[in-house]
Every structure is written in structure tokens, then in C-alpha cells.
Computed example of a mutant assay.
Amino acid sequence: MRRHTLTPRPDWQRTVEEQGLVYPLTRYPDDSLRPYWDESAYYSFTLDEIEALEETVEELHALCLAAADHIVTAGRLADLGITDPRVAEAVTESWHRRAELPSLYGRFDLRYDGTGPAKLLEYNADTPTSLVEAASPQWFWMEDRFPGADQWNSLHERLVAAWKKQAPLLAPGGPLHFAHSTADELGEDLMTVAYLRETAEQAGIETEFIPVEEIGWDPLSGRFVDHRLRFIRNCFKLYPWEWLTTDRFADHVLDTLDNGGSTGSTLWIEPAWKMLLSNKALLAILWDLNPGHPLLLESHLDGPHDLAHTTGYVAKPLLGREGAGVTIHESRQAAPVPRDEPCCYQQLAPLPTFDGNHVVLGAWVVDNEPAGLGIRESSGLITDTYARFLPHVIQ
């Protein structure tokens, strides 16, 4: 694993925008615009490194599914903050019927520097983003700059194949709706949904686009409807389950939830059981079940334990994205800093540094199989909204 500097292509911004990355720049607090898509550098890997990462992803995914089953069978949903009986019932039923429910993708965030086993930082299994740049502009960049090279990137092909495979699980009676929230001002959620819709259409599925805010409720039929008053039988949503089950329509969502049975009316993708994997409590439960596993970092729910005096620790809210609410506590601090909200306390394993940049690998899973890699760099130890995306090649 190596970092290389490179002169960006002429007119690179227009190029990646035409390839779907309409958010190539990030606005900073000083109102300056700096590249989010950063092709002034790239990473190279050996084939052995990529094959080892693929095996890592396979093993981590299996461990996570086993942990999800444990959470359900051992009655540990409350550890995830899922205390509403109706939500708990929906998640449990969804898990038991998971073979009947479409489930598409997820992203593991890994600490890796090429010298040892990767370590799991977290699993983004419900609404992962950075998909567009990993699947499309990254591939075309390689073809432009390194014709004939290779890349860990079968995302597009695997997504189309996944939709074809899972199409029979969709409820009959209407298109597959694709929804995102208009609260996203950057266009990232919009383009992620648009890209996934394109892969579904290439799989031969009829689709329809609708903002989450425009999904209607018909009190006469007791069903969700679109702007043409058609029943929404299937809906891919880039909208977290913790919002879907707590906003003003939450009761309607739970009343009409299609978990693969015959009484529901709306089949949501990702399914409700993904709440088991998209919660940071999963990290602590993984450690409970697999203490000392070489791919895991020691993690706890009831405090940092000895981590406060040994390696230091990172406190992560159970639900959060883009590093929001994450705090770092080094071992030299006299006492743990209390948190008011439920957190996962994970061993501090600082991100590796390449040329002064802190690097995290985003390894993708599509239909339960390793599918590709995206790399983000940050100036600090927390990968936040100011992180940059860099492409990669296999040597």
C-alpha cells in the first residue's frame, strides 16, 4: 500500500461531474471550496494486499451476521437503544424472514496500512454513501491515467446482478420507488439514489423516483402513495431506519411494514433487520462474542474499561454519521470523560498516516460479497465531512 502524487487531469471537475459526482468540492468553514474528489494523489496496492482485504471483508461480514443473530436470539435489542416494543418486533420479524427480503449493500470502514491485518472501525449497513465515486469516476479515472491497470471495483456489475437476483422478492403491483431526503443540500444522497436506480433499471426493474418528503399517506386505503396516488409497494430509501421509525409517520410505517409476510403493504430496502448492523453497539457485541479477534478492536458499551489507561479510546454515539459526536481520549488523560448519550467505547487505533494524511479504507459488500474499495483521507484522526476521496489502482 503506497501513496503517490500526480498532476490532476485538465478539467477534472467537469469530467467527474458528468460521471455523476456532482459534489466534487467541499465548502470549508472559511467559505473556501476545496476538492472532495482529490486526484492529486492516488494509492496503489499489490494483488496480495487486495486479496487479503477481500478475505477480511468476507470474514467480517460473517461475524456481523452471527452477531445480529445473537442480538435477536439473546434479546439484546435494548443494547442498541431499540426499546420500543413495536420497533423491536419489526426488527426481529425482519431478521427471521431475511431470506424473503431484498438486501443490497453495505460498507466496512477499516484501519489498514498494508503491514498487518485490517481492523474494523465500523459497519455502515443501512444508508452508506461514497458509492458513486467508488463505482464510477474512480474506474474512469483509472482508464484515463493507467490504461490496462486494474482496480478492486466490481461494484456496478455486482449491483446490477444483485437486483436481478432479488427482483423476485419484490412485491408485485407497482414500480420500485427510490427515495432520498431533500434535506441533503450537497446532492450526494440524490446521486447515490439516482445511481442505484440506474443499476436497478439495467437489471430490468421498473422504477420511480420520489423524495421522502413527497411520500403521501392515503387514510382511506391505509397505504403510502406516490404523487400519482399509486400504492408504494416497494421502496429503496436512503433514509435511516432510526428516522423512519421515529418521525411523524412512524406508526404508519410499522402498521404497513412488509417483512416478507402477506399482511404488509410496503417493502422497504434496506430491510428493518439492517438496524442490527448499522448501530455502533454492534462493535461491542462483536468483541463480546469474539474477544481478541485480530480483525476487531476492543469495544464496550458500559464505559472504556482499561482502555482509558492503556491504549486510549474513542467514544462513538450508537447512531451517527460522518464522524458526528465522535470524541478521542488518549491514555494519558487522568480519568474517562463521561458521556450523557449511549456510546460505544472502542480502542483507540489511530488511522495510518501517509504524507501527513490520515487514511480510512471503505470496503464495499454487495449481496453479501466483497465488491470494491473507496479511500478517504482526512487532516485529523476523525474522518468527517471534510474528508477527501482518492482513487486507487492494483499494481
Rank of each mutant, 00 (worst) to 15 (best):
D11H: 08
R223F: 00
A149R: 13
L104Y: 10
Q19M: 07
L104R: 03
A371H: 07
L155A: 05
H156T: 08
A203D: 04
L53C: 12
L348Y: 09
P29E: 04
L159F: 13
N259Q: 14
P240C: 05
R376K: 07
T127W: 05
R158A: 15
Y28F: 08
L282M: 14
A171M: 12
L361K: 12
S262I: 06
R145K: 11
I394T: 14
V393S: 12
W163K: 00
D184W: 00
A134L: 08
L283P: 02
L277S: 03
V393M: 11
F389M: 09
F389W: 04
V326R: 11
R27Y: 02
A118Q: 05
W273C: 00
L6V: 12
A118K: 08
L25I: 01
N368R: 15
A62E: 14
I269W: 08
G264E: 10
P352T: 03
T353C: 14
P219A: 12
A167P: 02
R107V: 02
V160M: 12
T115F: 00
H252G: 07
I205L: 12
M191I: 02
A335K: 12
R388H: 06
K165S: 11
S94E: 06
D48T: 10
E341R: 14
Y43V: 06
V87K: 10
G260A: 08
H156Y: 03
P168M: 07
Q202M: 12
Q395K: 07
D306I: 01
T127K: 07
E208N: 07
H4R: 15
L381T: 00
F140A: 13
E201T: 05
W141Y: 09
W273Y: 15
L6A: 13
E201F: 00
D31I: 01
D30Q: 05
H329S: 10
P291Q: 10
I205W: 01
G312H: 04
S103K: 07
V87N: 12
Q19Y: 03
A125Y: 05
F231L: 09
R27I: 00
L47K: 13
H156N: 09
V365A: 10
W12K: 09
R76A: 15
A349R: 14
F236E: 04
L318S: 02
A161I: 00
V72G: 13
H309C: 08
S221D: 11
R230C: 02
S103T: 07
E298N: 02
D11F: 03
H4D: 11
G75R: 11
R230I: 01
T26D: 11
W287S: 05
L176G: 03
S40G: 15
R14F: 01
A90F: 10
H180E: 00
R34W: 01
T15Y: 10
F249A: 11
G216W: 03
T353M: 11
L110Y: 13
H358E: 07
E185G: 07
E143A: 14
R107G: 01
Y23E: 06
T83D: 12
S278V: 01
T207S: 08
L53E: 09
A99K: 14
G204F: 05
L176V: 04
A349F: 09
E59A: 14
T199K: 10
G173F: 02
L361I: 02
D38A: 08
R14V: 03
V91N: 11
L319S: 07
P128W: 00
T311C: 10
A308Q: 06
G204W: 04
L229A: 09
R2S: 08
I50A: 13
Y105I: 01
Q346P: 07
D150E: 14
L47E: 11
L229Q: 07
